[in-house]
Each structure stands twice: as C-alpha cells, then as structure tokens.
C-alpha cells in the first residue's frame, strides 16, 4: 500500500541495523536524558552505603525533623531527617535500591510470563491464541491494586511477596503487544522460508521471531518497570507494601503525610525522586521505541 507518492529513497551506503540504531540513539535527546538520569539513580542505588555517612535505620531522638540544607538545615544531614531522626538522604539512597530491585525483578517475571504467552499465541493462532486471549481478558478484569493489596495483606509485606505479586499481575501488556507483533512477523515470508529450509520450531522462534519482536519487548519492559515501581510506592503508601523500617520511597511519603501541614518537604523529596526515576525510565523506553523503529523497509 502506498499512502503518499513515493519519495525516492535516501541513499548513502547503508550501515548495518545496529550501527543505524546507535546513530539514531546518539541523536535522540529524550533517550540520552532518560538514560543519564537513570544511570545516576542506578549509581546512587549501587553505591548507597558509600554515599551516605549515616545508616538509613539509625534513629536519633536528638535530631528529629531537621530541615534540609536548602531550607536552612545543617550539612551533616543535607536532606534533613525524618520524624524518627533518620537521615533522609541515606533513606532516599537506600530507597532507590528497593524501587529499582522491585522494578527490575517484577518486570522480569512479567516479561517471562507475558512474552511467552504472547509469542506462542501470535505464532500458533487458533486455539492457543483463544486460550491466551482469554487469560489476558481475565487478568485485565482483575483490579491490580486491590488484588495486590489483598495478597500482601494475607502473606505479609516482604520484598519477595511484593515482587512476586506484581510480577504475576503485570504481564498483560507484554502478552498483548507481543501477540500482535508476532502475528505480523509470522506472516512475513522469511519465516516461511526458514520453515521450508528445514528449521525447527524452537529455532524459528529464537532466530526469526524473537529478534524481530525484541524492540517491543524492551519498550514494554521499561513501561512495566516504571509501572511496578509506582505500584510498589502506592502499596507502601497505603501501608501494605514493603514494611517499615525498610527505606521505601512510598513509605517515606506515607510517613511524611502526617507532617503535611508543617513540613511539606518530607513528601516532596521522595516524591520528586520517584518522579525522576519513573520519568527517566519512560523516556528511555520512548527513546528505544523511536530508535528501533523498523528499519529495512524504506
């Protein structure tokens, strides 16, 4: 189908797909910004113990609710302290570990479930597809926050439980998108050619299908990672995520809520951190989508 009159192809010696992607990536401002912020947060999370002089758990009745430096506080607690006198910066830095870990692990679990279902449904069609579509429908019909809350309430709020629950709940978008993408790739003639050349089914899925739906998978992975991080924060905020005294950004906002009237910075700081992390992941995802736009077809 030609939508507009064909613009004659842009010609230079075409670089390989990977080189082209890299070139586009280096020109994509959103991707670079998202990647940079993400990298900073990642480094803070990894080196949290080295970057903070105080323990995130150490309480001090003498040093409660100290304001951050920019509100007239002291340099020893440059982001201030909370109602129990714990160093806010240290809790923030350690909280980044919780958020990132939950995001990564939950998204990995859902990616495994969702993309397996999606690819199989898209490749085989027919009954397999019907079954998977049904599962997706059931999953979508269940209210995520409510079910997660209920499960956490029943099993207790450990990191493992939260990760598992979110991982088991957030696979729907992987399945939906990869199903559609696989259906498209499956129709292409190189898949038929591989079959005619005697390639086995796992080989076709691995060599011909997966690499060509990989960009979708990566994009959804970033989306769901952000989704999981926000959900964990929301659960913790409601008091049913990871439990105190674990430093979690959602929990910090929840604890700061009590002081909303007098010390709004208590919720502003973890809120901004959360916002920046999710923003950077989303921008990274959007950037990857733009950069891996299907090449090959002019």
């Amino acid at each position: 189908m030609t939508h507009t009159p064909p613009v004659p192809p842009v010609r230079e010696v075409q670089p390989s797909p990977r080189q082209m992607m890299l070139r586009r990536a280096l020109r994509h401002r959103g991707l670079l910004f998202g990647g940079a912020v993400m990298l900073v947060i990642l480094l803070i999370a990894i080196f949290a113990p080295l970057l903070s002089q105080h323990s995130p758990y150490a309480q001090s009745l003498m040093a409660r609710m100290k304001p951050p430096v920019f509100l007239g506080g002291e340099a020893t607690h440059w982001l201030g302290t909370d109602a129990l006198g714990r160093d806010y910066w240290s809790r923030l830095a350690h909280g980044a570990r919780v958020s990132l870990m939950i995001g990564l692990f939950a998204a990995t679990i859902s990616a495994l479930i969702g993309s397996t279902l999606g690819i199989l449904a898209g490749y085989f069609g027919g009954r397999v597809d019907m079954a998977v579509t049904f599962l997706i429908n059931v999953r979508l019909a269940m209210p995520v926050v409510l079910v997660a809350l209920a499960v956490v309430a029943l099993f207790g709020g450990s990191l493992t439980v939260v990760v598992t629950v979110l991982g088991l709940l957030l696979w729907d978008r992987f399945a939906v998108v990869l199903r559609a993408a696989t259906m498209q790739v499956r129709k292409l003639e190189y898949v038929a050619a591989a079959e005619v050349l005697g390639a086995s089914l796992p080989r076709i899925l691995w060599k011909d299908i997966l690499p060509n739906v990989m960009n979708h998978l990566i994009v959804i992975f970033t989306l769901e990672m952000a989704h999981a991080i926000i959900l964990e924060a929301a659960l913790s905020f409601l008091g049913l995520g990871v439990q105190p005294p674990t430093p979690s950004w959602g929990l910090m906002i929840s604890e700061g809520k009590e002081m909303l009237l007098f010390e709004p910075w208590l919720i502003t700081i973890p809120g901004v951190a959360l916002f920046l992390l999710v923003l950077s992941i989303n921008m990274l995802g959007d950037g990857i989508r733009d950069v891996t736009a299907p090449e090959g077809r002019n």
């Binding site: 797909p17 292409l188 003639e189 190189y190 038929a192 050619a193 591989a194 005619v196 050349l197 005697g198 060599k207 011909d208 690499p211 060509n212 299907p294 090449e295 090959g296 077809r297």
Partner: peptide, 19 residues
C-alpha cells in the same frame, strides 16, 4: 524439505532484517 525450495514475491519480507 531441501528437494523443493522457493523464492517468494516480496523482496522486503523474505529476508530477516536482523540476520
């Protein structure tokens, strides 16, 4: 399988862009 081989119509769809 190898006895009968085929060349398809669409020159753009019949090669895997990632290999």
């Amino acid at each position: 399988r190898k006895d009968i081989q085929i060349v398809f119509q669409d020159p753009y769809g019949s090669l895997n862009p990632r290999r």
